[in-house]
């Protein structure tokens, strides 16, 4: 399973206009979510939507502006949890814009997903399979050996 979400979308509108809708709080609220975004690197802000009980989500995405390159790139951290400031999901959202003759190509990249509680297990599953399995194999061989000798 890939831990990266990518969307590419073409808008038949100039890059200045698309950028304005991606970086102005009131305009973002109209298509994305209510927010207190400001286009300042290091600014902490929130997106607010409905809670989702099955995902242990209280309806608030806690974000911080990580990078801004006007008309080209915008990046913010994107974290959530069950409430009271507890964070159980971490990720990063990055927008890249390319001005075209007749519009704007937008590349959305949402990645770096980490489940705080089960991170070790997840890493073991996704990235360390070979290492883990080798380790288990060694342990099992030792256990088998020990058993045979017992």
């Amino acid at each position: 399973m890939a831990k990266i979400i990518n969307h590419q979308y073409f808008f038949s509108h100039p890059v200045e206009m698309v950028w304005e809708y991606l970086t102005t709080s009131e305009l973002m609220a109209q298509w994305l979510m209510k927010n207190d975004f400001q286009p300042i690197v290091g600014h902490d802000f929130q997106f607010r939507t409905g809670p989702i009980a099955s995902l242990d989500f209280d309806g608030i995405f806690h974000c911080k502006v990580l990078a801004i390159d006007p008309l080209k790139k915008l990046s913010y951290s994107w974290q959530s949890g069950p409430g009271e400031g507890k964070i159980t999901l971490k990720s990063v959202v990055t927008w890249n814009l390319q001005a075209k003759d007749n519009g704007t190509e937008v590349f959305l990249d949402h990645r770096g997903f980490e489940k705080a509680e089960n991170l070790d297990f997840y890493n073991g599953l996704m990235h360390g399979w070979v290492e883990k399995l080798t380790k288990i194999d060694n342990l099992l061989n030792t256990a088998q050996h020990g058993h045979t000798n017992a």
Binding site: Y9, F11, M17, V18, Y21, Q30, W31, L89, V106, F121
Partner: peptide, 29 residues
Amino acid sequence: KDGFDELHAWLTYFDQFWASKLKNLENLL
């Protein structure tokens, strides 16, 4: 596999979430 399943649920959720939000943005523009 609880953590694995929940992360998978989030990824599915966000994939649809962004598809729908980008459509919103296009309509708005």
